[in-house]
């Protein structure tokens, strides 16, 4: 069972719909016990970094996510990817979950349309098991105004938007983060979710 962490943020039903469509067993939950018992964890999220961290703290989920993400496949999506990092700078500096070294900062590009909204093409970097088997020209759907600042060794894929915008990060072990929305990225996104489910032991 995949635990989709329900902490009051964003369109969690889209992730649930996609997993149902793929016939992957999942459950929306904010119960630390259910997360501990799950085979994998997805942390979705849309919104702002500080409010997401506050919501996770209120539900006493910070520690359980930090611990469980070391033991089983963990995928953060969009804001759920951003809070993986050590620090965010949306509105105010705020500590994240610290699962992967790095921070989240405003996309700094005076000539670009912000938010970065729409389909952008993945450029691959380090090997990442959940990106296996994708077409060479793979577009995925983004909508965000903040982006990760992360070392190359954790960067699995990026897209070009004025600069290299991290699209998928990977700690080399169990933690994955997608800045895009796999649940809204058509067949490519469904394949990524399927790959993620395939990591369950």
């Amino acid at each position: 069972m995949i635990a989709i962490v329900d902490y009051g943020a964003g369109n969690i039903f889209s992730v649930k719909n996609a997993l149902d469509y793929l016939e992957m067993e999942s459950e929306l939950t904010s119960d630390p016990n259910r997360i501990q018992n799950a085979d994998a964890i997805i942390l979705p999220g849309v919104g702002a970094f500080p409010s997401a961290m506050k919501a996770l703290k209120e539900r006493k989920l910070v520690k359980v996510l930090q611990e469980e993400s070391k033991k089983k496949p963990f995928l953060g999506i969009c804001l759920g990817m951003q809070v993986i990092f050590e620090k965010g700078f949306e509105f105010e500096p705020c500590d994240g979950l610290g699962l992967i070294p790095g921070s989240v900062e405003k996309i700094d590009a005076p000539d670009l349309i912000i938010p970065h909204m729409g389909w952008n093409k993945l450029e691959y970097n380090i090997d990442c098991p959940i990106l296996h088997g994708l077409p060479e020209e793979s577009y995925v759907y983004f909508v965000h105004s903040y982006a990760a600042v992360v070392k190359d060794e954790y960067l699995a894929a990026y897209v070009e938007y004025g600069t290299k915008v991290p699209a998928m990060v990977y700690d080399g072990n169990t933690v994955f983060g997608a800045q895009f929305h796999p649940e809204k990225s058509g067949d490519v996104g469904l394949q990524i979710l399927k790959n993620f489910g395939g990591l369950i032991k």
Partner: peptide, 8 residues
């Protein structure tokens, strides 16, 4: 639609 179509 949201159960069958996975684009925005």
């Amino acid at each position: 639609t949201a159960k069958k179509v996975f684009v925005p």
